[in-house]
Design a binder for these strands. Structure first.
Lengths: 170, 170
DNA sequence: TGGATTGCGAAAACCGTTTTCAATATCCAC
DNA sequence: GTGGATATTGAAAACGGTTTTCGCAATCCA
């Protein structure tokens, strides 16, 4: 019932595991292993939260400044295809990418003040959706639930907001 | 508990009422009453469902072929600002506009086969969301719930799909 | 009815994303 | 290893939906 926040610490073993899984996917698809893809994937799995393309590119450029948008976009598509990553859109017009959490499925609460995105999961909510679909002769393949609002801890919220604004002027 | 479909018939009185409300809004804002805006608004409130800009423009052009995208976009923004219309995005990358239904708030089931968008509302669902937010010290301003899947009535679905494809080659 | 002001339409700009294309890197067969 | 077929890269152009610009037209208040 408690919210499932994204990982507090991104440990090496997690990133390594994901990198290996991606390498396996690349091989399975008969694609080539490249320096750029490795850099992008390694960078992605060492970031946390819901990463935008720009945020990722900024990080990636620290390792290899010659990598551009095109390759980042292409690699993200591969990550999504490999099912190691999910694409999300929260209505601000840009795609965000999320490495799978420990939980299979979850929904989101988005604070409009500090921009923080919280994850949560509740089985009753899922069951109720299924029930409603059933009643209307509808079969659910996937769903999306987003709660937009404000976190109630003003201190933490203000801190995050400040941090966000600082890193925006990058 | 039954789904709230959009109006089956768009009656004159409904459209007239909305047009009057828009006229009042325009006046209140000190804006000018124009032929084009009237045409667009009148057309919009005589269409049903979740209307895309292109669909609306197509209809509008039947009344006045000189009206272009810019004015339709601008008028839709005014409609949203007037709170007579809500903007929705269902992840196919284009905005859809919805005149308020009889129900204040509702969620959506979207059939990925025929494209039909059903509306529904369930108080238990709303209450559960509030409860979950509460538990996580979060205050909900608004939410979005979309169930993507398939309608279970294959005939109706096929009909709608065909109809949609026919009107696409417009 | 004049004239300040707002709105219009066409075209250009925008913005996030995708594609193109020539140059480069990968990797399998030898 | 090396060659060579093939995949990948990066820069720039294209894209698609939306917004803005700009010169002209319409509105509406005094």
């Amino acid at each position: 019932m408690a919210p499932v926040h994204h990982r507090k610490e991104v440990d090496e073993s997690y990133a390594k595991e994901k990198e290996a899984a991606f390498a396996e996917f690349i091989q399975r698809k008969g694609l080539k292993t490249t320096r750029q893809r490795n850099t992008i994937v390694a960078t992605f799995f060492r970031m946390r939260g819901h990463v935008s393309v720009e945020e990722l590119l900024n990080e990636v450029k620290k390792a290899n400044s010659r990598i551009g948008y095109a390759t980042v976009y292409r690699t993200l598509h591969l990550l999504v295809e490999s099912e190691l990553v999910e694409e999300r859109r929260f209505g601000d017009g840009l795609a965000r990418y999320e490495g799978h959490s420990d939980v299979e499925h979850h929904d989101h609460m988005i604070c409009l003040e500090c921009g923080e995105i919280f994850e949560f999961f509740n089985p009753r909510l899922e069951a109720l959706q299924e029930k409603l679909a059933e009643e209307n002769d509808f079969k659910i393949f996937r769903h999306r639930l987003e709660l937009y609002g404000a976190c109630k801890d003003p201190e933490a919220c203000a801190n995050r907001k400040q941090k966000r604004q600082a890193s925006a002027g990058n």
